[in-house]
Design a protein around this nucleic acid. Structure first.
Lengths: 257, 257
DNA sequence: AGTCTGCATCTTGGATCCAGAAATCACGAT
DNA sequence: ATCGTGATTTCTGGATCCAAGATGCAGACT
């Protein structure tokens, strides 16, 4: 109860930074303020979401004090959250120097997609061997939702729900856990993917559902693989552009004009 | 056979201390006592090792206070360690009631080995496509060491080093990370595996190295897969025996969901 | 006599406080 | 003027303290 009351009402703490991650984070904190059993997991959810939706960009330094103030809790649950996020591979601890948002290198992204293709095509094969009408129906619904939402906060969530059903996550919890870990690593770049990707993917989930419904294993696997490769290429493009952008602006503060 | 001395019957049914896990833990704590930068990671290492070598059996209740005293630190780094271990899948938190050592079900073990076969055969294929003489030499050495050590505390470590080299872990860090996660889940049961496994595996690492050196991909993959399946069967046997032992003296005590 | 409810105790989870280390800034020397 | 060195300041990591929730037992009521 005490935790939910600080809704971060005045986010005017440090207004002035260009992207204002603090204001956005305070807004996130407000949305998550109520209905949590422990503030530790609340802090975890807030920071996690902030990283995944780009509010806290890769490389951003995560000061415990600031985060604690913005979320409205003590530094301790923030530390817990950061430790969890480190295990998730989203943040990185520097020995006595605090934590930063982990950024993904091009090689890492390539490896992630290689692994996703390996794990997800295997999951699809296994899942299709055991398909039921009920799951197909749910799949259609979820696929339609996923295809419809091409942007927004629940963009990733819709896809996650679709693939969870597609891979029959309930029957292979560990495999799904691994897949989710991998998706988490690239989730932050998925938002930008649509911007550079063309429109050929707009109905991919529906097409995939068709192949699954028809029981055609190899075509379905091919569809999935091509889809993942397409997303991968988009993410890679974005990453390369980002790394170029980071290399260029070596602006000194004291540079004379 | 130091590892398998307990007959497994009275092991960890309740909080009852079969052979004083506290004393063993204190010994572990002594070994780890010096040379750590932060006590949080020390606590993590100690508890992790205690779980993996069976000192803290599955189902064991982990009281923060006790652990803190045994390790010789405050409860806070213990909490940090437990949070990390939860992310590793080794312990499980029950909302306001503390943490317990997670136990592995037969289904979970089966899934773990299914995934290990998938990921590790893929890693082997990729690694063999890029083999060098230096790595082969290191591999021979590590394989010999692994085959030699059939017991003891560094039993698992020797194998880990061998497979890290075999899969060229340095070039595929994420894939190796996933493999390590999976190996971690079954590591606690690997110690007992040798007891039920026959002696046909005694030179498996050396044989595997031979196939790798010869550049014969499919035979090497087959060797690896068979090896993993053999270990899997041993672990499954052990798990089934253990679950039977647990089923018999059913001390029901308000089990929770 | 059995069961439900209320109280006491234990244990986790959170906050505040303290110490150690690292980065920064200022001052001095070259 | 620039670089190196030392002091200050800031921030992380740890310990102790406090509150909230859950469990278990005991007593009372049906």
């Amino acid at each position: 109860m005490t935790a939910g009351e600080r809704n971060g009402a005045d986010e005017s703490i440090e207004v002035g930074t260009p992207s204002d991650p603090e204001a956005a984070l305070a807004r996130l904190a407000g949305r998550h303020a109520v209905g949590y059993r422990s503030v530790g997991v609340m802090a975890y959810d807030i920071i996690r979401e902030a990283i995944l939706d780009g509010t806290l960009p890769p490389g951003h330094k995560l000061r415990q004090e600031t985060l604690a103030e913005l979320i409205g809790v003590s530094r301790l649950p923030v530390r817990s959250a950061l430790i969890q996020l480190e295990s998730d591979g989203l943040v990185e601890f520097h020995d006595r120097r605090g934590a930063v948002v982990k950024s993904l290198s091009v090689e890492q992204a390539r490896e992630v997609y290689q692994l996703r293709i390996l794990l997800e095509t295997a999951a699809l094969r296994q899942s299709m061997a055991d398909m039921t009408d009920q799951r197909l129906a749910r799949l259609r619904e979820l696929g339609r939702t996923a295809d419809a939402k091409q942007e927004g906060g629940d963009f990733v969530d819709a896809r996650t729900a679709f693939y969870a059903e597609l891979y029959d996550a309930a029957r292979r919890p560990i495999q799904w856990e691994l897949i989710e870990q991998l998706r988490l690593k690239v989730g932050r770049y998925m938002l930008g993917w649509r911007l550079v990707g063309d429109d050929t993917h707009h109905h991919s989930h529906d097409e995939l559902t068709d192949a699954v419904a028809a029981g055609e294993v190899e075509p379905a696997v091919q569809l999935l693989q091509h889809h993942l490769e397409g997303v991968r290429d988009g993410v890679l493009e974005m990453l390369e552009a980002e790394s170029l952008a980071q290399a260029a602006p070596a602006r000194r503060r004291r540079s004379r004009g």
